[in-house]
């Protein structure tokens, strides 16, 4: 089920939470909404499920305008809010049963068993929620969102506050949903690696504005810059390496790691990276690697460089000076809207 966000605008008092982002979330995709704290992610999700009304613009979920048909949209959307919670004295099964009965699901018991198994809570289903860990609580929230087999699943900061095992478990579930169903999964996060590993499409919000959107592949491929990372523990070798690198590249970033090991990072053109590595003196270098630009680089480029073109902006809402970009095309940095 496709979601189209068009010129959405929302303000709270003097604060503009969303300043006209427009983008499309393709049907069946796993779509990440990236942004720093206060970027407008949760506000956008609140509008998407009809928690709040926009001051301008529209959100269309599978042909339904959220503002006009919020009730029907919520029938089709499973939502895991960032700050979801459940009454501690209910058991996990009772929470799901309450959800299922409010939704009017017919094959309730069967469906509850299915989602409990999917999120790995079958054994804990009859325990009071107050005894659940944070991760189990999030998985219960996910189970509740999945109950109606929604064509759209919206997850607001789903792994915030989870320990590494909880994060991994959650990622596995979301990956399964993405791979095994046609569900359109929309998740927000400020963890770039999470979005990069889970999502096939992404939108980058900053200060309520859209700074980039498109497939992860296309955003990551933007530009020819790669990062060369060189590590050494020898202080004198480090100084020599630094001199050597400064002779060859203009932009140099030095990263100190734990005081015991120094890592020098250089961003340069792909073509120059091989030349640079070839000229490094091997006795000075303990470790080196050449990294392709990832989502992190795309994010910083988008946020620091203003808006980037949106390959999936709805007709009539293309970003200024934009031409449509095919999947995988380079997305040039542009002036902010």
């Amino acid at each position: 089920m496709q979601i189209t966000i068009t010129d959405i605008y929302k303000r709270y008092g003097d604060v503009v939470a969303l300043d006209g982002p427009s983008f499309e979330i393709p049907s069946g995709s796993t779509f990440g909404v990236l942004g720093t704290n206060g970027a407008g992610k949760s506000t956008l999700f609140g509008l998407l499920v009809g928690h709040d009304r926009p001051d301008g613009g529209t959100i269309d979920v599978g042909g339904l305008d959220v503002e006009e048909a919020g009730h029907r949209v919520r029938e089709r959307v499973g939502f895991l809010p960032e700050h979801s919670g459940f009454p501690g004295s209910l058991t996990g099964r009772e929470v799901l049963s309450t959800h299922a009965r409010i939704r009017g699901l017919e094959n309730r018991d069967e469906r509850i068993e299915e989602v409990l198994e999917l999120v790995g809570l079958t054994d804990a289903a009859d325990r009071a929620v107050s005894g659940y860990s944070n991760g189990m609580g999030r998985r219960l929230g996910l189970a509740a969102a999945l109950l109606p087999e929604p064509p759209v699943l919206v997850l607001d900061e789903p792994t915030a506050g989870l320990d590494p095992r909880g994060v991994t478990a959650f990622h596995d579930i979301v990956t399964r949903i993405g791979n095994e169903t046609d569900t359109t999964v929309v998740l927000s996060s400020h963890v770039l690696s999470e979005v990069e590993s889970l999502c096939d499409h992404v939108a980058i919000l900053h200060d309520g504005r859209l700074h980039a959107s498109g497939s992860v592949e296309s955003l990551c491929a933007t530009g020819d810059t790669v990062t060369v990372s060189v590590a050494t523990t020898n202080p004198s070798a480090r100084a020599r390496l630094l001199e050597e690198l400064q002779l060859r590249v203009e932009e140099l970033e030095v990263v100190h790691r734990d005081g015991s090991s120094d890592r020098l990072e250089v961003r340069c053109d792909r073509s120059r990276a091989f030349d640079l590595v070839a000229h490094l003196e091997s006795d000075l270098v303990e470790h080196f690697e050449v990294r392709e630009p990832g989502l992190e680089a795309a994010f910083h480029r988008a946020v620091e460089g203003g808006s980037m073109a949106d390959e999936s902006a709805p007709d009539g809402h293309k970003l200024r000076g934009e031409t449509a970009h095919a999947e995988g095309d380079a997305i040039p940095a542009e002036v902010g809207r």
């Binding site: 499920v49 919670g85 009454p87 409010i102």
Partner: peptide
Amino acid sequence: ESGWLQTLFSLPVS
């Protein structure tokens, strides 16, 4: 404050 209201608001119920 317990988060239950946010969960209920996400359901198709007025």
